[in-house]
Amino acid sequence: MRTRALVEQLRAQLGAADPLPPPPPAALITPPPKRVFPSPKRRSVMAQRAADHTTALVGIGRVGTRYATDVVLQFQAELAVAHGAVEAVLPEGWAASMGLLGVQSKVQDQHQHLLRPDLGRRLSPEGRALLEARAIKGADIQPILADGLSAIATQGAGMALLNAFMDQCRALGMSVGTPVGARFARVWLEDEIGEITGAKVSAILLGERPGLGTGDGLSAYLVYGPKVGRTDGDRNMMSNIHQRGTPPEQAGARLALLAKAMIDQGVSGVDLDLSQIAELRELAAQSYRAPQRRQRLVEVH
């Protein structure tokens, strides 16, 4: 546009008098939409209906080739929730205040916890001594509540899940060992704890790696015949234990059934035959989950 103005000026200077053709019509650039989020009128019905059934990022619309502003803001807000959960630290003495036997892995601080999973899988010497001295030995189930990658989740629904799990185990006639609260723990720490207490099944309930907008999810990993050196193929697990996923009470019941099956069959992991457990099937049939709606952390008007 600058060049046109310059040519116009020179033309005036040179005293040109012949008339110019009219400038081209039409607007230059279409103005941006007032509301950045696509209007409901323009949204695809299929995407809308799909979005009613999942918290996944579907039916979020677009502006040109980019995301709408509120989708970007929502994404950043959800990422912040996940960052907050990763950075949260389980307070020292939290386990004891909840009536658990508190132990710690070989990890010294949160930074090391994130960078050195290998240290998070082994007990500190003090923790080992404490377990040897005070934990009940030879029980059917060794319950462990740990921070994992989200101390927020552990402090949130952790105790509810642990209590539901222990109650259900007792109801199914299994003996339950001393509940342990582990700090800076990774999943495999259950092997060493279970080995020391001599439990048949070691069960660790811990905060799972936070996702977008879910910093409060818990996971549970169960292993039969725990000993250091067990692999993930020897474990059975359940994830997404939170109010928008499987509620802790329901999860506790399912985990207890899983533990019972392990003891009955004497195996865990890929060798465990889940098809024989009628109650688990029944429970799965009952656990209809209502369509989930994405929780909006940001509103743009």
């Binding site: 060049t3 310059l6 040519v7």
Partner: peptide, 26 residues
């Protein structure tokens, strides 16, 4: 948009037969 509104040749004589393109791109 650029072709319609910005970049174009100009006629350096009255007949428009001498075409010149003195274009500045900022």
């Amino acid at each position: 948009r650029c072709l319609e509104w910005d970049a174009c040749f100009y006629g350096a004589n009255d007949a428009g037969t001498v075409a010149v393109f003195p274009h500045v791109i900022p």
